[in-house]
């Protein structure tokens, strides 16, 4: 399945701080585990909490996901996809 075909789930956690940001992210990773692993889905988390740009990727990596962190205007986007 190509990237274009993957469904993108967007979660906005702006205004929240850790650990709740992380918990929201983890909750979604748990919920969509199967689709994320199979590549049907990608998870895009928006956050304005700087700590979350470390905690979410670290945990997601430990869970085996591929992570990409992009800085946007005033917030961050963390793209979580299936491992290569």
């Amino acid at each position: 399945m190509t990237d274009q075909a993957a469904k993108l789930i967007e979660i906005d956690t702006r205004g929240q701080v850790c650990p709740s940001t992380l918990l929201v992210a983890l909750d979604n990773m748990n919920r969509y585990q199967e689709d994320l692993y199979s590549g049907k889905m990608k998870l895009l988390i928006r956050t304005d909490n700087r700590d979350a740009t470390t905690t979410i990727p670290d945990t997601a990596e430990n869970m085996g996901y591929e992570i990409e962190v992009r800085q946007q205007d005033g917030f961050y986007e963390i793209l979580i996809s299936r491992p290569e």
Binding site: L26, N30, Q33, T59, N62, M63, G64
Partner: peptide, 22 residues
Amino acid sequence: ALDPLGIISRSFIQILEHSNKT
């Protein structure tokens, strides 16, 4: 209601699975 324990433990399962594979 939010069940963070559930969230975390399910995440841990993923982490463990990944860790096992690794």
